[in-house]
Design a protein around this nucleic acid. Sequence first.
DNA 1: TATCAGCGCTAATACGCATTAGCAGCGAGG
DNA 2: CCTCGCTGCTAATGCGTATTAGCGCTGATA
Lengths: 344, 344
Amino acid sequence: MAPTKRLTQKDIAQLAGVSQATVSLVLNGTPDSRNRIPAETRERVEKAIRDTGYVADPVARRMVKGLNRILGVFTYEPAFPSGQADFFTPFLFGIEEAAQDKGYDLLLLTGAGKERKIFGENARLRLADGCLILGRKFDNTELARLVAGDFPFVAVGRRDDAGGPVPYVGGDYAPATAALVERARSLGHSRLAYVGLNEGAESTLDRWYGFSRSVGEDELVASIFDVGRPAGETLDILTAAGATCLFFTELADAVRVEQAARERGLSVPGDLSIVVLGNHIRADEPGRRFTSFAIPREAMARAATEMLVRRVEHDAPVEQLLLPCEPLEGDTLGAPSSKTKKTP
Amino acid sequence: MAPTKRLTQKDIAQLAGVSQATVSLVLNGTPDSRNRIPAETRERVEKAIRDTGYVADPVARRMVKGLNRILGVFTYEPAFPSGQADFFTPFLFGIEEAAQDKGYDLLLLTGAGKERKIFGENARLRLADGCLILGRKFDNTELARLVAGDFPFVAVGRRDDAGGPVPYVGGDYAPATAALVERARSLGHSRLAYVGLNEGAESTLDRWYGFSRSVGEDELVASIFDVGRPAGETLDILTAAGATCLFFTELADAVRVEQAARERGLSVPGDLSIVVLGNHIRADEPGRRFTSFAIPREAMARAATEMLVRRVEHDAPVEQLLLPCEPLEGDTLGAPSSKTKKTP
DNA sequence: TATCAGCGCTAATACGCATTAGCAGCGAGG
DNA sequence: CCTCGCTGCTAATGCGTATTAGCGCTGATA
């Protein structure tokens, strides 16, 4: 049996006793052409539309021209992870909210059956008027192609140039990181350590730059440019170097090191301060509240959506926006004690 | 900057010195029609395609095929709540997974700007090929209209008839509830109590029916057909009635009553057993693990998506599917003690 | 030699919509 | 009486593709 037939303008036209063209005019005629259709006729058409719930086929509409009031959302990883921390949820919430405000629906590109690629067999993306791109890790080739092309898009999260400026809304990690360094310094810390990658994604780089630029030559007593190392080993290195305040890019590392420290009888922040660069999802678990800064995910997503709408509707120029990250007090940063100045 | 004109099959045809139809046949002819194009010609066409990097316009492609490969997702509440428990996430995950499998994208209906209604000013629903409907609470008028219409849809969660059978995938709460009652009975409980609504949503009714049908006349010693009542009051009533095992539909009620019980020196499940009818999101918090049953949300969503695809593609008949809910052992159901048989 | 069956390809059409040109009717102005 | 312009609509077209019907040709068969 054939799939259910879609309702078309022809059907509406028949119901209202007019031509297909008239239906189209009623739906989206310019003020001048619309004026030429008397209220009586218009109402007949509108009634037929209301009765049937007809909506113009986005595909046909897109073909002939113009906008669908649909924003594409492309995620490099599945948008709704089953396990634990859901990275995308706050972003999606912000996007949904802004899209609803602006009167757009969202098209979630699923990566249909295969690996997630924007440009695949099917540039299905193009059904939407424009597209938001999310993901921990972007494919730079694709990004360059997007930049080169003329399809409106906005990245959530700062992205480096890819053959041209990338429109984005990101978090301003560098100053937020610097502010935390300053705060540690003002509490009396002068022996700092950094644990995290110093290369890779832009968000990672920003943290490292923000840190390294605000830290004095002799303040940085140890760096571990790696993540996921055994906590004991990490702690050995850092305490041997006499660090009094540890900066982590990864919450997981911080959690483990904090635990290891306690097991060795070191109190946090009494004997050792710990700072995490950026709040991570589900950091709001019972127990420790790490000193950190807030990543305004929802606000980023809203701003990105609004930026995209500007680009779609008014062909606005490329914008790049970094939103400030407020410091999170937490309870893992305090004044240094003399006890940790030397390895026990 | 003038948008680069999109490359079309006509361009390729010109380059290869053939007709547009030939290009299309080379790209996606059936084995029989393809055979009729000699290798020499095919290669000329393919070379032109390689040289130019031509890709068929997905929009035109979908247009002629009549299928958009888009599934609508309508939620009666915002899909991504910022606060606390996110009801929809597991559903959305299942939907995304199944849609990706089947090669569909998802259109999140935001209810563009206004109150969420399927049939509103803007019945954008029909943008998609079919639609999944989620929500704690449905609008029955709208449901009836959907049933009467010919737009393919599937509800996630059982829904009663609305002028006709509603296609759905739900959780089979009644037997799961009955199984928990049976389990309590086999542990020796003979004085049971029920706390929750006995009217309203189908999911609520199912629990009550499953409970009331499997409970003997004299086993049910107390019922509170309400939710959100003060815990102390609830506990007073139930213990006065001599109940040894309490069944809750709402996790929140159970949590508060359990706490109240402990404050009165009653141990759970030592002195009082508590059962929650259905696992709720974030029930996996530290502390108590209530005895309950698992609602297979992801599986429900996957099944619903697949059902919808069947309806969209093959005009399959209405199906109604209930998925089993596995019991969750938990630690709040144990053998009754004599201590609770009378109010202290 | 007339016929006919492939072969290799193309013209034509449909998909659903937006848009433009323009038709029929009518009252007003000349 | 003949335009002219306005009103209220419709026919026709094009978007880029998939698909079908069918054309002209060649070589084999009757």
